[in-house]
Design a protein around this nucleic acid. Sequence first.
DNA 1: GTCTATATTTCGATAGAC
DNA 2: GTCTATCGAAATATAGAC
Lengths: 197, 197
Amino acid sequence: MARPRTQGPQTREKILEVALELFSDRGYDKASLRDIADRLGITKAALYYYFERKEDILLELHLRLHKFGSEMLAEFEKIPDGPDRVAAWPRVLDQLIDFLITNRDVMLLHVRNPGAIGALHANERNRLENELLEQRLLRILSSPAIPLDQRVRMSSSIGVITELFGDSGFAFVDVPPEELIALTRQVLSDVLRMPVT
Amino acid sequence: MARPRTQGPQTREKILEVALELFSDRGYDKASLRDIADRLGITKAALYYYFERKEDILLELHLRLHKFGSEMLAEFEKIPDGPDRVAAWPRVLDQLIDFLITNRDVMLLHVRNPGAIGALHANERNRLENELLEQRLLRILSSPAIPLDQRVRMSSSIGVITELFGDSGFAFVDVPPEELIALTRQVLSDVLRMPVT
DNA sequence: GTCTATATTTCGATAGAC
DNA sequence: GTCTATCGAAATATAGAC
């Protein structure tokens, strides 16, 4: 009969860590609480001590992205709408690249679980936060103070980054990261018609 | 007591249509056979007259993309590896744009259900077809006969299209499709450093 | 803080009547 | 071709002991 482990306060963090990996790996629905508990050497029921529902684990992971998006938007929105924002866009792309490289797992979680993430909308507070973030980005990309052509290019630049560091990343695994980043900046410069770093 | 509807031979098509919508909308796992049956006004059991397993519905939808990808790759592979392929790439992008506009729903199904689609690998024939398609695209983008810079740009061009007509499409709903396509071609020309149409 | 044990729900799938 | 009825598995969630 195994004695309780008493892992202490960091157990909560470990749950989030393991959940992030399993949710990303095999999908939110396919990763059961039993899977998570087994890998941590605890039982399913113990998880309920830290999180009331399975969904709450996903929610907490989701909010990490909220945090990044919100901070980035807040910084960008300080800039007056118009040409100044176009000029500042490269800085946004830089931060996005950084985030994608250091938080690959959180992004993967979202890319691979849009349905489960969408279900978080049942949570009132989360839904409002989400809609607000989307509106803020939409507002930036819809501004009449920026020519349509430039807005299409700002949007395109996001696509370039997500493609090279996401879906098509496998095609360039042999390329040293620094070289790939440099080439990406070249492409982004051409997309935006202005230098990127 | 409701009399059987006897919807006739087009019921199979309707099932695929509704399944495509629900699978894309809320995710494959979250869309139950009950959901599909309810929307069609039939019962769960009736679905089993047309499809042996739930997975078979997804498989049939998935093969639509196989068909498009296979045809496009076959055409492109006729071109000798090297500069000729770089020159022919814009034509590929044109076909991709056409496909995304007319088959938005099928693409969304795949983008939003990578896990379920991946599980189709259990089907031997499908797995082999899939791996072959991936290898063919990887081969194109990994060719030593094309400079790395150009290959990164070919990959980036796919990202531009999927972003503008996929994730960020909502930002340009007010723009007439023809104008958006024209602007997209402009961006693609800059990405590839050659004219696109 | 963790356990055992069990309740509850949901879903894919099958059997057999009509 | 469609129905009712039900099975079995798996998952989320709860109750209560230690």
